[in-house]
Structures are given as structure tokens and as C-alpha cells.
Design a binder for these strands. Structure first.
Lengths: 192, 192
DNA sequence: CACATTTCTTAACCCAAGTCAAGAACGTTT
DNA sequence: AAACGTTCTTGACTTGGGTTAAGAAATGTG
């Protein structure tokens, strides 16, 4: 039940047995069916979730079009940082791309952990810092890589995405329409 | 000397007089002339800096072209998160766009603060969380806003950037060439 | 199995940004 | 003043992604 969580936490910051149990008692489980929403734009994100099994994405909706911000697999944490931290309504949706098992912690319980134990405060810092690194890398790629370069990097850097996510969602993540991703794939298949 | 720092810290997390003084004793000052580099790609980012006065940007270099990642003004912290946290060489440059006064803290001293006092650990978490929010907003804008929309938002959201940063740097920040930003401005001026 | 839905590709045309080249406006230096 | 560099704009042409429409291939469902 908590094996994957334990492994994942240990990579960031090893906790004592007592600390881990304390943490675990605050978690609830939730199962999302494929396409089920974890968060809807307009709602406040009051929980964050650890993915025990499955896959989610967060996306923005603009003029009826979806734009995929990020994909998350087992071992990752998901939530809307902005809404979770500020208490403002979220501007993004989070949904499951496969049947997915989650471990969920309430914002208030996490806040309590931070107040009670500096060890968890550090956990929160390290988690946020890692999210910064990922987010800045993504920003940089959108800024100066072509869609074709982003596609080629994705194949190398995140094979799981290529294996488990439909191409039209990948296109959206890369910042192009599905038709353009098709053309990019055609170009690559023909020219090399 | 430390007025602006005190004000800035208090907005994030008020510190006791003793805590603040402890923090302040670890800081050194540095003055950068316009165009002087604070960090060079290939170097490890061993310090982060609080901007007392002035303005910096970080940028990437690709095929001889500069791509501006972000601009920072007085009251902000600058550094390369990725390099600072992982100890790996940076892939970005940080330079001053005006004559700039900095307060600098060493990575090892900050680490020491984290270890000694949970209060600073919280400061680090809050700082990182705020960087996440900013970075994700920027990613989202690059993903689904047109360059024209990004330009219009910049005028509203960050007037300081429009006032103090040359247009060709703004173009780069928006993800277009200077010629394209000129055309965007022409389109908007010709009313459409 | 047949049917529907989702996923992916292709084609024709349009448009905005890139590229290359030139020059104007402005500030700084000599 | 003249010479220079920086900043910004404009024009002609190219390129690649968006749009629309259609259909093919794969997957799911009764």
C-alpha cells in the first residue's frame, strides 16, 4: 500500500519510521477511473495526491481548446501549486489518463505537519525545489526549441510519455496541433 | 543597507530581530556594472543574490542566439535554481541590465541556516513555492498565448519591464525575434 | 461479429513569424 | 561635428504551424 510512497520519499528525504507512519496516517486513498477529474478549473485545490499507480495530466482550457501542461506517472505528486498555496480558484483541470490509484493529503494536514515537524518542512522545500527545476526546463524548451526538437527530446527523455499517452495529447503538450505533430513525424520518417 | 531586504522578507515570512541579524551577517555586497555577468553557463551557481537596486536577466544561448528566461528587479532573488541545488554546471547566463547592487549569500551558508533553524527552512520552502507559481504561469503563457497576447499581458502585468528593458530583450522574452515584435506593435498601433 | 468512437494521417490553403537586407532614430565617444 | 554603436523599424521573401475537411486505422462496445 505505502511501498511506492516510501521509496519515493526516501529518494528525496529519508524519514524515520515514526515520521513516515505519522505521514501515512494522514493519507486517504482514492481511485480515479480513466477520464475522471481530480481537479476542475474554478475549484480551489485543497488536496495534493501521490500517484500509486496510473497517470494524470493537468491542462488548461482556452477558447474550447485543451493545452496540456504536464503529465504525471506513479511516484509523482500532483496538484495545482498556485491554487493549493494561495487558496485561489484553480485555472487548470487535472484528470486521469488511465485508471489511477491515489494517496491524498489535505492542505490543512500538510500545513500541520510543517508546523509540527521541521523534517516535513524540509520535505516541502525539496519537493518545491524539484518542481521549480522541472518547470524551468519546460519553459526553456518552449522558449527556444522548435516543436520538432521538443518531440525528439521527449522520445529520449520521457519514453513513458511516448508509450502511454495518445499522440494528440503529446501534440498539445509540445505546443502544436495534432495535424502538425503528424507532419513532424512524417518529415522525420522521410528525411532520415 | 538592509531595509529593502527586511521589507521583502517580511512579505514572505516575518523573522525575529535575532533571526534577521543572523541572516544579514552571512551576506556580502557586490556591485555589478551594466552588462557584467553574475553567472556564466558552465559555471556552478554557488551563490544566490538579493537585488538591492538594479535589474538582471537570465538567458540561454543557443546557436549564437540569446533567449531571455526572466527579468529581475530590486526586491527579487536571482540565481540558477538547477545548478544551485544540484551542483551541476549552469546552462544559463545571468547579467546586469543596469548598474546593480546585490546582497549575496553562499550556498553552504544557506544550507547551514536551513540545518540550524527551521524558520529558514520555511523561508526556503516559501521562496521555492513562489518561484514555482511564477514559472508555471510563464510556461502556460508560452504554451497557449500568442506572442501578441503575451506582449499585451506584459504591458499590464509588468510595467517595469516595459519601462526599463530594451524591446529586443522583450522580444526574446516573448519568444519572437525583434522584427516580429516590431510588426506586432505596428499591427496594434494601426488598430486591430 | 458489426458498429461506433477515438486516434491518427493527409491535403489544400492561409497567415504569422523567421530570415535577410537596409536604413532610420538615438545616444555616446572622440 | 563627425563617427560609432545600439536600438528599432520596414520590406520582400521563405517557412512551418493553423484551419478545414476528409478519410484511414485502431480501439472499444453491444
Amino acid at each position: 500500500m505505502f511501498d511506492r510512497l516510501k521509496t519515493s520519499l526516501d529518494q528525496l528525504l529519508p524519514l524515520s519510521r515514526e515520521e513516515f507512519i505519522h505521514f501515512a496516517t494522514l493519507l486517504t486513498t482514492r481511485r480515479l477511473a480513466k477520464h475522471e477529474l481530480f481537479l476542475r478549473a474554478g475549484e480551489v485545490c485543497t488536496h495534493i495526491a501521490f500517484i500509486n499507480q496510473g497517470c494524470l495530466r493537468y491542462y488548461y482550457l482556452k477558447d474550447g481548446n485543451e493545452f496540456n501542461g504536464q503529465f504525471f506517472f506513479e511516484g509523482a505528486w500532483v496538484g495545482d501549486y498556485h491554487s493549493f498555496l494561495t487558496g485561489q480558484p484553480s485555472v487548470q483541470y487535472i484528470d486521469a489518463l488511465e485508471d489511477t490509484d491515489l494517496l491524498i493529503i489535505k492542505r490543512t494536514d500538510l500545513q500541520m505537519l510543517y508546523d509540527e515537524h521541521p523534517r516535513f518542512e524540509r520535505f516541502g522545500r525539496l519537493l518545491a525545489e524539484n518542481v521549480v527545476i522541472g518547470s524551468q526546463r519546460r519553459t526553456a524548451s518552449l522558449l527556444f526549441d522548435t516543436p520538432e526538437e521538443r518531440y525528439l527530446k521527449l522520445i529520449v527523455d520521457r519514453p513513458k510519455v511516448m508509450e502511454r499517452i495518445p499522440l494528440h495529447h503529446i501534440a498539445s503538450y509540445l505546443g502544436v496541433k495534432p495535424e502538425s505533430l503528424s507532419r513532424i513525424r512524417k518529415r522525420l520518417a522521410d528525411n532520415r
